[in-house]
Amino acid sequence: MNIFRLIGDMSHLLAIVLLLLKMWKTRSCAGISGKSQILFALVFATRYLDLFTAFISAYNSTMKLFFISTSLVTVYLMYFKFRATYDANHDTFRLEFLVVPVGGLAFLVNHNFSPLEILWTFSIYLESVAILPQLFMMSKTGEAETITSHYLFALGSYRALYILNWVFRYYFEGFFDLIAVVAGCVQTILYCDFFYLYITKVLKGKKLSLPA
């Protein structure tokens, strides 16, 4: 554990809490892509199966349980409790276009051809693109609520901080995981356009609206 990873994890935690608070306080999930949230639930469910096979630390297990359970709660809130506020008309990204290629790639490019390892790899690849339905939805509506942009900024920062963590671990621990690093870089790059808008608009007190 180093400082970059700790801040990265906290940023990830903050993102999830922000999203749940936004939905709970406004009793609405308007502007949030249910498809991205389904993908995140799938990411956690496939990655953290090692909860049952390996114990790393209390921190590790607690965080894994938190991520799995909150992602399921988020999907429940969107598709059941606050379904009436879900903006399905704008959430039209086709999930099979992500899940199928990512599944194929996980079979072909992995560290070890075993069920748990393939699921872990699938989860890493899927996470790198899971935000696309959300970004697609925002590009269709042309805007995002400020709280939603805070959520996305925290969520994007988490993987960017993990990159710093991997640089640190490479130099000081000799640790290097090519799959995680490449996928993490792809994931972070996808947020760059959003980061630019966030810094130039939201941090200056303006609402996030996309250039027409």
């Binding site: 090692d50 790393i56 894994k64 995981d177 995680a180």
Partner: peptide, 10 residues
């Protein structure tokens, strides 16, 4: 990849 190595990450 050692099992413990990357599975300590979230």
């Amino acid at each position: 990849r050692g099992d413990k190595d990357s599975k300590d990450e979230l």
